[in-house]
Structure formats: C-alpha cells, structure tokens
Nucleic acid binder design. Sequence first.
RNA 1: GCUCCCAUAGCUUAACGGAUAAAGCAACGGUCUUCUAAACCGUAGAGUGUUGGUUCGAUUCCAACUGGGAGCGCCA
Length: 584
Amino acid sequence: MNTPRQELEARVAAAVHRLFSPAPPAPYVRPCPDLRHGDFQTNAALVLAKEAKANPRDLAAKLAAALALADLADQPDIAGPGFLNFRLKPAYLAQQISLRATDSRLGLPAVANPETFVIDYSSPNIAKEMHVGHLRSSVLGDALARLYRFLGHTVITDNHIGDWGTGFGMILFGYKRDGDPEKLRQDPFGHLESIYRRVQEEAKADESIREAAKRELVLLQQGDAANLELWNRFLKYSLEALDTIYRRLGVKFDHTLGESFYNDALPGVVADLLKLGLARESEGAVAIFSDGKLPPKDDPFLVSRDGKYDDNPLLVRKSDGGYNYATTDLATIRYRHDHFHAKRVLYIVDGRQQMHFRQLFAAARRWGYGAMDLEHVWFGAILGADKKPIKTREGGDVKLKALLAEAEERAGKIIAEKRPELPEAERAALGRVVGLGALKYADLAQNRNLDYVFSWEKLLAFDGNTAPYVQNAYVRIRSLFRKAGLEQAPVAEVALTEPAELALAAKLLDFADSVHLAASEYRPHYLCLYLFELATLFHKFYEACPVLTAAAPVRDSRLVLCDLTARTLRLGLDLLGIEVVEQM
RNA sequence: GCUCCCAUAGCUUAACGGAUAAAGCAACGGUCUUCUAAACCGUAGAGUGUUGGUUCGAUUCCAACUGGGAGCGCCA
C-alpha cells in the first residue's frame, strides 16, 4: 500500500520514463511546505531541465501532460519556475482511508528484504547507578529498535554494560575492607558507588591504596576465586537493580553482553591484529596506526600538530598488558558479525566519542568487517540551567531513579488537580504513563544532535509538542467511542467534505512516510512532529465537526476517521516507547 | 595548535537544495447551557552568526571568519 506521496512519485517516475529514453535519476515528490500551493509538489521538471538545458516551464507542461493521475489528484498546476503542484481528490483520500481502516499496520507493509540490525544502547556501568546521562541513549535506542522492528527488520538489542575494567580493582579493595553484604543486596549501586568514591578519594593521596587496588584487579583478571565470586555478586545484584529501572522505563534488551563477556577474546584480537600487521608495538603498548591509504585530512589515525601530521593511534593493549575499550569494541564487532550475522550495527552513544568511533570503524574495515555497516548514532549533551553538564545541587549525577519518580509525581499532581474525582490508584497509574511519556517524548521530539537543556518545566510542560498533548487526542477519541457505546468503528462508507476532515484524512495517510523518514535518518523526532501535527489536526476537526450528533452516514464516516486517528496515535507513540491511556 | 559539533522570532525548536522561513512556549485579545478547556480561534514577533562562492533557486552544499561546546596514547 502506497502513501499518497509514494503513489505520486511512482506516477511521476512513469511519466518521466515515457518522456526520456535513458531515464534520469528518480524524481521526488515531497509535501508542499505551504499547503496553499497544494498537497504535494515535484521539482522533477527543474532537475530535468537542467540536464537537458531546456526551459523548465515547458518541460513541466510536457510532464504534466504525460501524467496519468485522474484517479487520485487534480490536473497539476505549473507554478513558479516549474513546480508541479498536486492536490489530492477527496474521493481518493476517502478510498485510501477505507483501505487503512481495516489494516492493522495502517498502510505500512513490512519491508521485502529485511536486514539484521544490532542496536547497542544504554550501556551503563554496573558500579554506578544510572543517571540522567543514560536517558537519551536508552530512550533513543529503544525507539529505533521499535521502529526497525515494526518495519520488518530483524533487530537484536544489546546492552553493552561496563562490568569490567580498572574501577573494579578499587571496588574490590574497598568492599573487602568495609563492604556490607546486606547493603549490597538492598542497594547495590548506592553501596558500590559510595565504596568506589571513598577509595578513589583515598587513592589520590595514598600511593599504597592505589597499589592495593591494582593488585585486586590483577587477581580478578587472573581468575582469583574469591575476587571472582565477589565480582559475580556485584554483577548479579546490579543487574537486578538495572532490571527494575528498565522495567519501569519500559525499555528491553535481547542481550546484555557486557565488557566482561569479551574478556577471553581480547588476547586473540590483539594477536590477530599484530599478525595481520594492522597493529604494532609502540612505547610498550600495542596500537593501530595509519596505513596511509586515506588523505591525511580524512585519516582518523593522524592528527595535525603545528602544520604536520602526527600519529593518532588507537591503543589496543596498554604497556602494563591490560586492554583498552577499543579492544573490547573490536571483539564485540567480530562477535556481532560472526554470531548475530549483523548487516548493520547502530551505536547510540553521545557525540563526544565521535573520534573513537571513527577510529574503531576504520580499524574494523581494515580488519575485514567492511561489509557490515557500522553507524555511530550520536546525540548531544544534557546540560543544566547553567548550560554546563547537568549536576545535582550537591554536584553529583542526577539519578535516573529520582528522575522517574519526580516525573511521575509531578504528572500525578497535575492529574489530581484536573481530575479530583478519580480514585487515588487510578490517578497514580495515569501519573506513571503521562509523566514517563512526557519525559521520553521531550527527549525524542528534538533533533538528537542538539545539546539538551534539562528543565522540569520543559519536560512536564503539557502544552505544545509534548506526549500529553498527543495522548490527550487519543483520550478524546476513546471518550467518543465510550459515549457511543462502541468498541471500534462501524464498517461504513467514508465521505469527506469539510476542510477539517480532508486535512485530517490527508495527514493520516502520511503515517508511513514519517515512519520511514524517522527510521532512515535515525531521528525519531520526525515521527514526534508527525504525531503532534496529527493530534493538532484532530483537535481542529473535533472542534469543527460534530461526530456523535451528526446524521447517520456522516456520523459513521467520522467515526471511521476517529478510529483510524486513534490507532495511528497509539501505534506512533508505541513506536516511540510511549503508552496511551483510556482517559486522563 | 589540530579535529569534530552547534549557531534560525524574547525562549525552546522545525524546515528530506525549492515558492511569502514553520510551530510551541512566553505576551496580548477572544471561545465552556453544545461529543472532556490538558482544547480551539485570533494579534504581535525572525529573513536564518559574518563575508564570499556554487546554483535558475541556499537555513540547507562549499570556503574563510566570529562566538559557544566537545575531543585530541595507555579512562570508558
């Protein structure tokens, strides 16, 4: 099933094909930025005229004459320098609405050639409680996983947790000295983090503590039974605590293969890199250097200093024999290739690590994994009101747990004001869905590359482009159906006459375009924008067009429109990881 | 020093090389005896950091510059 845009594009392509024997690159049809001009436009004539050195308006006229689209749109206008503007016919809109009214995928068929994606997101450290910095990765990654899954791809989600590394030496040392098994069980993050902080503080001043921590780490890495047992306990309790948070967030993973999972593979990775000549020893460490095949400007293994290029190697083994996270990342790439047969891997990681990923991906290509498409889907920082990385008043990280609690509580308070008659338990349930939805949506609704200034006012502002606004449109429709005593829309002829009906119908048909756009660019904010516009058009329709009080044929037609709107809003929000409620 | 990212109404943002740059918030003024006012309608508000270039056409591409942020061998 094509969207109107896809259908018009196919018709334009066919016409272009008839007019030009070597068919030029596919022309495109896009929505008119200004609806006064029409619903869709193509600039195909402008592009073709440039190629053929012809008059664009003449070409546009020829193209218009060659188009066969009487069943879906009026004969196009030729406008400006040679645009063709299309206006869809109400009968076509109505027919397309009817087709989607009985389609559970709302007019978006699954892809014909599914690919296997691995999506890597969230990735907290198990010795530290999750904080606000993990929110974007978790929420974005989850939304992208849902989007690609819905499109019909095979999606494997993997939480690459930090469960190994130098920090654990300090934790082991500190835990042995003043750990408390009961506290560990009850609040693993709180306990481990306070231990970690204390030892880190002491180690700054005391060389012997630094040494002791290092010895614990070496013991752990050598497989010492006592340290391994402790580490396993840290892992077990931390994973349980993480689970609680993820359940609350509504974020899921197929796998949680942390750094420790790749431990045993690391020596082999380095040996392989050395054998292949990709890496060599340098100052006691092992590193990957430039192979000179790229222009120095584009070579991630070179950096320009004072006018000449210096090495900027990627370290894969430290001079003390330990491994870097680059090594783990390379082992992970190999595993995802060999074991998951991934065609594409998305890393949902903040933008500060761009250099690391450029080096990592270049190293992976040279290592022979060039057929796999590796993408760093990066996002901006979360800043406080002072535009500096966000901290609590005490200077610590803002805990995710506290954040979720506050979102739910604040939403609950607003609901209590608006709906005092609801029972307490119901209000709490609504607060959870609305608060969490607002929190996630605020993050998803803006371009991920921008820094994000955190503020409660903004997060829980329930006006404008927010989750509650969109959820509310859904609630209004459900309320109509409750009032009508109907579970779903009647099977009815769809007839569209009012401007508000036509605008709503046209927007409903664009759903698949927005999903494709959001997925292909890894930018869920396109879908948010679509849902906001859809909700706005629904509210306008609701204002202008009575539903239940209209005469029978109009009433049923409008109920079909309402039902499709509700299902589109629900599915769209679901693809973002946001729930709906039946009333609010 | 080098590399990367960002710069659009008072604020937060949108714009998939196209037409008179689009929304929300805040401001101001309206609409609840009519399917839930977490709604709707209206007014005012920018020419996209600067200077060039490519193009029939640039917020979008290229170059230089300015301002802000981040990163640059044994942390992840």
